[in-house]
Design a protein around this nucleic acid. Sequence first.
DNA 1: CCGGACGATAATTGTTCGGT
DNA 2: ACCGAACAATTATCGTCCGG
Length: 336
Amino acid sequence: MLSSVGRAAIRRLVSTSSITASRRIAVSWPATYTVRYGRVFVQGFASAGRPKASTTTKATTKTSKTGKSTKSTKATKGTTKASAGKGRKKSTTTTAKKTTKAKSKTSASPKAKGRRIKRKREPLSPEKKLVVQRRELKKTAMFEEPKNLPDTPWTVYIFEQTKNKTVLPENLRNRMKEISELYKNLSASERQRLANAAEQNKLSNAAAYTAWVESHTPEETVAANKARYLLKRKFQYPASPHVVKLIRDHRIPKRPVTPYSLFTRARWASGDFAGRPFGEAAKAIGKEWLKLPDIERHAYDDLGKAARTEYEKEVEAVLHRKPSPRRITSKPPSEE
DNA sequence: CCGGACGATAATTGTTCGGT
DNA sequence: ACCGAACAATTATCGTCCGG
């Protein structure tokens, strides 16, 4: 049982040895989605992320800065049309298209016969295959998310103060300091105005995002997230933000809670661990769980089963597929 | 990629199990 | 076979806004 400490240590090792934490994939939800978010980690870099006070901090900070502005700029362009819900079918199947193209080409050159085409498709080196795969993944990844309006008082203020106003790069630093000073000295009513504007923007951001998500099918967003995940893992794409934002589709069923999760929830709710350090409490809860009498444990197992059943129903209804076969519920350690 | 302020969130612990 | 998401509370850190 070196588990806890040992595992954490290993994780830390992995994180430091793996060139910053930049491989983690994470999701960033719009503000209104207070729902729990999902975290997806790249294989082999599990928990490699957010370094605390360790030496990795600086490195991470430096590398992670890259390209955030780039991305936001791109996103800005897409803002307006985003909510309109443009491309309904981002067909995830490209085979049909290909066939069509091939046909038209054949007819274009009368001399070309069936045999010629055969010869053509033979090459396709491994490198090319990768290129093709990458292109397909990019297509299905749905990268054209709507851009957000500034949604905090501070960013709204920056927006107002700098938008469409020429600032030389060498003056940017001073300008920012000025704006900061101005911001600090704002009147209460002025702050309120900014807060209101931010709140308003937050609402329209959420609406735009939802509209965009719903302009695709749940299956499409699931495929898109898979594509994003693969792109990051196999192709390090996009290179700039080390965190990949997955599409948050409220229609996609959440994974069912496990019996242990339910137990954790109940133990925290009991108040027995109020004020105690998170890690310490988690360890204690884990021990409690392993010692839990069968009768009590079965209660959580039953709740877990119900959650699973509910999940199965949702998956079938929303994603039109069967969920993975149910695992044999593991038995408590204290078998008779 | 710079600057400052601040809302959002990943990491932390433990176990179980869905997904690939 | 193995990764990560499910739950909890807290907090350090990240991303965000602008222009050139």
